[in-house]
């Protein structure tokens, strides 16, 4: 059972992060940091930051960053990759940034099959502004702007990136979560695979990660992980959906 190699923070994680206790972003950032370190591509990586809780990776990770307006990562990554095709150009996005205000840019980058990578943290709400309705907020779920819970009549149906992107000619589409060590391993494999697709010039890759927002869900971090396992995972198609 014991691991042979030491497990410690990858060198890219330069200091403590600024996220809330039990936040999914901080776990994902470390996973990404491990992959960038293991692939030895930190010096060749430029991360396009979204605006929202997710942007706080830039305070704790020693990596180059470009931060355009909220949600415009699809456009910015397109330009970044085309002017420096030898760099890995990726974003750590929020579901609000990638699927609401930036849906046009995200979809346009995907339909053009730009050789860039999206990691979208789906926590079913706008975390930084206080847990308002996001496209991904589930039917029946409370949010601070839908105090009676989301209903189809009042707020419309929720957004599922897999349903939207399933038939696109893109290189990689996966949905994972981080609720347990084994799920984290799957996420790490998906992160690596997405970046390998970019390395090999295969085209657009997107990994959606179901992450907890204990603060805005009003749950303890442990309960928030259980909520993902019991409430979100059963509603979603999980795993690798496109792998070309």
């Amino acid at each position: 059972m014991a691991r042979k190699t030491a497990k410690k923070a990858p060198v890219i994680m330069k200091c403590e992060n600024m996220f809330c206790a039990g936040c999914g972003h901080s776990i994902f950032d470390r996973i990404l940091g491990e992959v960038l370190t293991e692939m030895n591509i930190i010096q060749d990586t430029i991360i396009c930051s979204d605006i929202g809780c997710n942007h706080q990776f830039q305070y704790s990770m020693a990596v180059d960053v470009v931060m355009p307006p909220h949600g415009k990562m699809g456009a910015a990554l397109t330009a970044m990759k085309r002017v420096r095709p030898n760099k890995y150009c990726l974003t750590i996005a929020g579901d609000g940034g990638a699927y609401a205000i930036g849906l046009g840019e995200t979809m346009s980058a995907a339909t053009r099959d730009e050789n860039v990578t999206f990691f979208v943290m789906n926590n079913t709400c706008y975390g930084m502004t206080g847990g308002q309705l996001a496209p991904t907020t589930q039917i029946g779920q409370w949010s601070s702007s839908t105090p009676r819970g989301r209903s189809i009549e009042e707020h419309g149906r929720d957004f599922d990136v897999v349903k939207v992107m399933k038939n696109l000619d893109i290189a990689y589409l996966a949905r994972t979560t981080i609720t347990s060590p084994s799920e984290i391993d799957k996420t790490k494999k998906a992160v690596r695979k997405a970046l390998e697709k970019q390395r090999d010039g295969k085209g657009f890759s997107l990994v959606e990660v179901l992450v907890p927002c204990p603060t805005n869900w009003g749950m303890s971090p442990v309960k928030a992980m259980e909520h993902i396992k019991n409430e979100l995972v059963p509603r979603y198609e999980m795993g690798e959906i496109i792998d070309k």
Binding site: C48, A76, M80
Partner: peptide, 18 residues
Amino acid sequence: GESEIASVNMVYAARALG
């Protein structure tokens, strides 16, 4: 670009990369 908004942000990113 798919819009003016996308285009102006593409320029932001390309210029940020030099």
